[in-house]
């Protein structure tokens, strides 16, 4: 896999198909925990960790257990149980070994079980038939996208608190309008990520073209060379 492809997957899952702004996953925590920058970043970081771990585990279970035994229809129930127990395990581990981290992130962990970004990314990664490495990149990109938007949005909301807003718009309504403007900005990132050269269209028929180039140069090709020499 080329470096270009890695960048492409991470950037497209982070910016173009941002979990919050274009896929509408995790809106509850997006609106609920974004009042202060500190809590937003804390929530974002825990979501990154849980998304990557949960997607890896669920991907393995989906491909090596559920598909193999023809039990794909159990995916929702299995995935949610995996996520819930994973969150529980992470909580216990952090509590025991890194108490300082637990103090700052601990309160967000139980909320993550019902964060639809985690379940949504896990389901999408398994259903779209990604390879293991692509799945890791996709999960990481989605998580980072969540963190990025949480950070920007909490910053904007902190600033909004200081400004005068019409009484009817204050609170959640104005936050949603701000989110809408953010979504407009992010939907314009389409041009920023270009697909790598390998996927670009070449002239049809691709195979026939290559052969003729090697054996006998076409008239057009010769014309071009002559023109350039002149």
């Amino acid at each position: 896999m080329s470096f270009n492809q890695i960048i492409f997957i991470i950037f497209s899952s982070m910016l173009l198909e941002n979990v919050i702004l274009s896929q509408f996953l995790g809106i509850c925590s997006f609106l609920g925990v974004s009042k202060s920058r500190k809590s937003a970043v804390g929530m974002g970081l825990s979501v990154v960790a849980v998304i990557v771990l949960a997607t890896t585990v669920t991907w393995l279970i989906y491909n090596y257990v559920l598909v193999l035994f023809d039990l794909v229809y159990l995916k929702t129930i299995v995935f949610i149980l995996v996520i819930a127990s994973l969150v529980q395990i992470i909580e216990i581990i952090i509590k025991k070994f890194v108490p300082s981290l637990y103090k700052s992130l601990g309160i967000y962990l139980p909320l993550i079980t019902t964060n639809c970004a985690v379940l949504g990314v896990a389901i999408k990664a398994s259903q779209n038939g990604l390879t293991f490495f692509n799945m890791l990149l996709y999960a990481l990109g989605s998580g980072l996208g969540f963190l990025l938007i949480m950070f920007i949005f909490s910053f904007l909301r902190e600033e909004l608190e200081k400004r005068k807003v019409p009484k009817a718009m204050s609170g959640i309504p104005i936050a949603l309008v701000v989110a809408s403007i953010l979504a407009i900005i992010f939907s314009r990132y389409v041009g920023i990520v270009k697909e790598d050269e390998g996927e670009k269209e070449k002239e049809l028929p691709r195979t026939a073209n290559v052969i003729s180039m090697h054996l006998t140069p076409s008239d057009e090709y010769l014309d071009n060379i002559i023109r350039r020499m002149k």
């Binding site: 702004l21 274009s22 509408f24 019409p166 009817a168 718009m169 959640i172 309504p173 104005i174 936050a175 949603l176 309008v177 989110a179 809408s180 403007i181 979504a183 407009i184 939907s187």
Partner: peptide
Amino acid sequence: SAGAFMVLGIVLA
């Protein structure tokens, strides 16, 4: 997607 946020925001307002 941007319109979705806008509409919900305005309805809530």
